[in-house]
């Protein structure tokens, strides 16, 4: 069934959109990521204008993370205090990222920058995660003791000021690392049109040394707030959020997210990380190959004069 999308100004198959939404929702429930890094390229591939794809993805990311975040909160797997610190940094980062985006757009470099940053980021993070999680699986299989992650946290950022206690994570660290981390991810997510969970999850594990069982929930909470902000900002400033497209993706996402959560419970944490790493790496590789091969059409057409 074809449905006309009033902002994107094209008509697409409604069932295909619901399917895409549920697939992304499944992944977001499973890994605690918003899924924007998959959804935005998928929508562009289906013919949605890039600006509408990125902005509308944000609303889908917000929705799929709300169902996940509620489930995780009920399971007491969200560190709200950490979430609020991350939100503070993330919100500032989003505003900063929007300025960078506008600057790049003005100089005409945005179309060079976006695919490159996608490739660099996805392959770096995917590669690092894959190496770590495969090593972790190996260690577990051989029956060796898993290094305690929380023990290292106190020493790693020990010299930084403004210490804060996070009772839920059993962490006492300076607020600076999470603030800077969230700022960086927030600005990146504004430029790339993603929620940033796929960066947040590994960063919280490896940099902040948060307990892995709290990482998914807290990341979902942070992604939820940032994605809501991005949706509102894009709708307000750029008029690029398509509510009909969003509704169809949401329908799928609402179906997929709880299934993903259930699937995640059957897998071990390191296996889950390895899977996410493969997914991120695969997406980065695909974009890289796209940039490598000589395109059939040397020109790209984009609407608007700006």
């Amino acid at each position: 069934m074809q449905v006309y999308l009033p902002i994107a100004e094209i008509s697409l198959n409604a069932f295909a959109l619901v399917a895409v939404g549920s697939m992304v929702g499944f992944l977001s429930g499973m890994f605690g990521v918003g899924g924007g890094f998959l959804l935005t390229p998928l929508l562009i591939f289906m013919g949605v204008p890039p600006s509408v794809a990125a902005s509308t993805s944000a609303s889908q990311v917000a929705a799929s993370s709300v169902s996940g975040a509620i489930t995780q909160a009920r399971r007491r797997a969200v560190d709200f205090r950490m979430g609020l610190v991350l939100f503070g940094g993330g919100f500032a980062g989003t505003i900063f990222g929007v300025q960078i985006f506008a600057l790049l757009k003005l100089s005409g470099q945005i179309d060079i920058f976006i695919p490159l940053i996608y490739v660099v980021l996805l392959s770096t993070i995917g590669g690092l995660m894959l190496a770590e999680s495969v090593a972790a699986i190996h260690r577990r299989r051989r029956g060796r003791e898993i290094p305690k992650s929380t023990a290292a946290a106190g020493t790693r950022w020990a010299r930084l000021p403004w210490k804060m206690h996070f009772p839920r994570s059993k962490l006492t660290i300076s607020v600076l690392p999470p603030l800077f981390l969230a700022f960086g991810v927030g600005s990146l997510s504004a430029v790339m049109g993603v929620g940033g969970g796929f960066i947040m999850v590994p960063a919280m594990i490896y940099l902040l040394r948060m307990p892995p069982n709290l990482v998914v929930g807290t990341s979902l909470f942070q992604v939820l707030i940032i994605a809501s902000c991005v949706t509102l900002l894009q709708a307000f400033q750029n008029h690029t959020v398509d509510i009909v497209l969003a509704a169809l993706l949401l329908l799928g996402g609402a179906l997929g997210a709880p299934l993903g959560l259930r699937a995640a419970q059957r897998l071990k944490a390191d296996e889950l990380r390895a899977l996410l790493a493969l997914l991120v790496l695969g997406m980065g590789l695909k974009l890289f190959i796209d940039l490598l091969g000589e395109p059939r059409e040397l020109f790209v057409l984009a609407p608007g004069a700006a």
């Binding site: 709300v66 809501s228 509510i243």
Partner: peptide, 18 residues
């Protein structure tokens, strides 16, 4: 419109979770 989009997204997500 933006508030409507965010509201729709959050309420659907919450409803689905419930």
């Amino acid at each position: 419109y933006g508030l409507l989009c965010v509201g729709l997204a959050l309420s659907w997500g919450a409803a689905a979770a419930a």
